[in-house]
Computed example of a mutant assay.
Amino acid sequence: MSRTDEGTEHRQEYARGRALAEQKLQQDERLLHSSSFGAAAGAYAEHRPDYAQTAVRWALEPAPGPRVLDLGAGTGKLTATLLALGFDVVAVEPDPAMLAELRSGLPSVRALAGSAEAIPLPDASVDAVLSGNAMHWFDMDVAGPEIARVLAPGGVLAGLWNVFDDGVDWVAGLAQVSGSAAIGPRDVPTSWRAETAGMHLPKTGDARFDSPEQAEFPHGQRRTADSLVATLGTKAGMLVMPERERETALGRARAYLASRPETADGEFTLPMLTSVLRVRRR
């Protein structure tokens, strides 16, 4: 081997090693964020919004039957909406504290410990798999085939995200003041569309699934300044932040809300959208 070839090989090996190291860092960061919610399970159950019923109906429109898996169900926000619409729901959640909140709040629901990468259900046992504000935490390479396994032919996979409607002036200002840890890329509509365009599971080109579709539906949540700040405090980026930095960020949000006539006094409606990514199993 010439010195030139040897140098090229060393550079390629270095590049591969660096890429693997960066991938490991991304995986570790995702795990840190996705596992942060259990410590705030009670606050999550109290302050996170439900999902627009029109969005859930659209997500399930092509489903061949009423059996729905709420995957990464958290404390049951989406589960409760599905129940209200009359679907036959089973919930799967990996975090013990979140699962305990779900079982306490919705004792009639079949709620199982499990994850998107290891779903504790038989093959072709559900007509739809829905995920509320959770699909971005999945290991898609593993979760995709697992979701396909439990879906009946013609079944639907859909991710739903509640996002802040930053087309409203004061909401856009809150996003700027609060910072990305509180209102991140997937928390506003324009960034959500880009972030989730290729997120359907399994990956683009899998012959078992049709092309994905995106849609957005108006939604809102009654809040006060204090309860909205508490809602921001349940975001993963805030939960993993050092306490002093977190309090500083939440303090900025609180001061901003106190300065705006729309939010300074009493209850108001937080303008939101429930955004949906849908794909159908062939």
Rank of each mutant, 00 (worst) to 15 (best):
M1L: 14
M1G: 15
S2M: 02
R3P: 13
R11F: 09
R11K: 06
Q12I: 09
A15W: 09
G17D: 10
R18K: 03
L20A: 15
L20Y: 03
D28G: 05
A41G: 04
E46G: 05
D50H: 14
A52N: 00
W58P: 02
A59I: 04
E61S: 12
P62Q: 09
P64R: 04
R67A: 15
L69D: 09
A73L: 10
G74M: 07
T75H: 10
L78V: 05
L78P: 08
T79L: 04
A80G: 12
A80S: 13
L82D: 11
L83E: 15
L85Y: 05
L85N: 07
G86M: 12
V90K: 01
D95S: 06
E101L: 08
L102F: 14
R103A: 15
R103E: 11
L106G: 13
P107S: 04
V109Q: 05
R110T: 15
R110G: 01
L112P: 12
A113N: 09
A116F: 04
P120R: 04
P120S: 05
P120H: 03
P120G: 02
L121S: 09
D123F: 02
A124P: 00
S125N: 10
V126S: 13
V129T: 12
N133T: 13
H136W: 08
D139P: 10
D139L: 11
D141N: 11
P145M: 14
E146H: 05
I147V: 15
R149P: 08
P153Y: 00
P153G: 03
A158W: 07
A158L: 10
W161R: 00
V163H: 00
F164D: 06
D165W: 11
D165Q: 12
V168W: 00
V168T: 12
D169L: 09
W170C: 11
W170N: 05
A172F: 06
G173T: 07
L174H: 01
L174A: 06
A175D: 00
Q176A: 14
G179H: 03
S180F: 02
A181R: 14
I183Y: 04
I183G: 00
G184C: 04
P185K: 12
R186P: 00
D187L: 05
D187C: 07
P189Q: 07
R193K: 09
T196G: 00
A197C: 03
H200Y: 03
T204C: 00
D206A: 12
R208P: 00
F209Y: 13
S211F: 06
Q214E: 02
A215T: 05
E216F: 06
F217D: 02
G220D: 10
Q221A: 12
R223D: 02
A230T: 02
G233A: 04
V240Q: 01
V240A: 02
M241N: 09
P242S: 02
E245R: 15
R246D: 06
T248Q: 15
A249K: 05
Y256H: 14
S259F: 03
R260S: 13
P261Q: 04
F268G: 04
L270Q: 14
M272N: 13
S275I: 08
V279T: 14
R281Y: 06
R281Q: 12
